[in-house]
Nucleic acid binder design. Structure first.
Lengths: 126, 126
DNA sequence: TAAAACCTTGGAGTGCACTCCAAGCAAGTA
DNA sequence: TACTTGCTTGGAGTGCACTCCAAGGTTTTA
């Protein structure tokens, strides 16, 4: 166990993650963050582990997962090992949704390509 | 010119497009629909052309384009031929954003895959 | 004709994901 | 020490994209 664990203030975490301080506090309030350490005076001191969690949460956000589902996932993590099946299920459902979403968007992209091509020529209608 | 153009009531359009009547009226109100024909008593009668437009708008929605940008696009169409460059630009910007979004999601999908794989084994941490 | 189903409007309400505020205490720098 | 910058909280506010409501007129079906 290292005695030199890095601790980050909220503004350091803001600039590292791109999340605002408001959002970071809000994440904690709604239960999307494991409890963050505090300094003797009560200020937040984030750890590298917190940063890792935030990075993972960022990936979940990117997938389009709702905040409610992310909170659900965080709860399952807090509840311990016996929730791994539920967690995997939640992640698998999310994965199915992401795959569907990507294929829809790829479809829409083709329409966009066609339309732009159309404009490059001259037969313009809409 | 055909004399047997099909005209759809709002509930027919609802079941064909999956958009609610509320949303269809709202689209018209905000200028996202070209003006829809009315029956002698004022009820909407949508044409096949309206359905085509709605299908295209649906594709734009799928790309994640904001309603404000879609309205902007609709305005450009109404303004006529001299706006084709602006329209193409708007579509090209949207295309760049969609491509970026798809690649972000593909990335996040890989993380999800890794995590699920992880759960399938036994080294479970978060 | 009578009932049921469908349509109209302007405006209010909803859910989501933040985003900001005020008042006050804490920490770092000259 | 004085000043500036940073941090705390609960709660209010924002922007987006719908979603619904009430009151009343229209159309279809039996």
């Amino acid at each position: 166990m290292s005695l030199t664990q890095t601790r980050y203030t909220i503004s350091e975490v803001e600039s590292r993650t791109g999340l605002t301080q408001h959002t970071l506090r809000w994440y904690e309030r709604i239960g999307l963050m494991p409890h963050v350490d505090r300094s003797h005076s009560g200020q937040r001191r984030f750890s590298d582990k917190d940063l890792d969690w935030l990075a993972f949460v960022g990936k979940l956000r990117t997938t389009g997962m709702s905040v409610a589902d992310m909170v659900r996932y965080a709860e399952l993590v807090r509840e311990g090992e016996h929730t791994v099946d539920q967690r995997r299920e939640l992640l698998e459902r999310t994965r199915r949704e992401v795959r569907a979403r990507i294929s829809e968007m790829t479809d829409a992209l083709a329409v966009l390509d066609y339309k732009i091509e159309h404009y490059a020529g001259k037969a313009v209608r809409q």
